[in-house]
Amino acid sequence: MSNVGLLVKGELYKTIKNRKLWFFFIFIICLVTISGAKTLGDLETQQQVLRSSTAVYQDFMHNSISSPEIHSVLGFVKKSISITWVINIVMIIMASSIISNEYSWGTIKYLAVRPFKREKILIAKFSTIIILNILFYMIIISYSYLVGIIIHGFETQVAGEKLYYITLKLYLYHFISNIPYISLSIMVSTLLKSGGLASTLSIITSILGGMIASVINKYPYAKYILFTNTDLAKYVQGGAPTIGGNEFFSVMIIFVYSFFFLIISLYIFKKRSI
Rank of each mutant, 00 (worst) to 15 (best):
R114M: 11
I150S: 13
I141S: 08
T156N: 14
N217Y: 12
I253C: 07
K125N: 03
I65V: 09
I16H: 12
Q48C: 07
T230F: 12
L163T: 03
I149Y: 15
P180A: 03
Y224P: 06
V113P: 00
E161C: 09
S194M: 03
K17N: 07
G210T: 06
F260N: 04
I150T: 15
L50R: 11
I123W: 04
L232R: 01
V256M: 03
G239S: 08
I176Y: 00
I87Q: 00
Y165N: 11
L168I: 13
K193V: 04
L74H: 07
V147D: 02
S100C: 07
N3E: 12
L50T: 10
V236Q: 08
G209N: 00
N229P: 10
T167E: 00
I151T: 11
I151R: 13
F259I: 12
R51H: 13
D231F: 02
I203Y: 03
T39Y: 07
L74K: 07
P115V: 04
F76R: 02
V188M: 10
K14Y: 06
F136M: 05
F259H: 06
E102S: 02
P115M: 01
F136S: 09
I87W: 02
H174R: 15
G148F: 02
V56M: 10
S273M: 05
I254Y: 05
F227V: 15
L6N: 15
F154E: 08
S52L: 14
S97N: 15
K38L: 15
I123C: 06
Y181W: 11
S82K: 07
Q237D: 14
L170W: 13
V49Q: 12
V8I: 13
P180I: 04
S273T: 02
T230C: 06
Y145V: 07
Y143S: 09
A222S: 11
L43E: 09
S67V: 03
I99T: 12
I176D: 02
T15F: 04
K193Y: 01
K14E: 10
L201A: 12
Y221E: 01
L74V: 05
Q48G: 13
L197R: 04
F260D: 09
I253A: 04
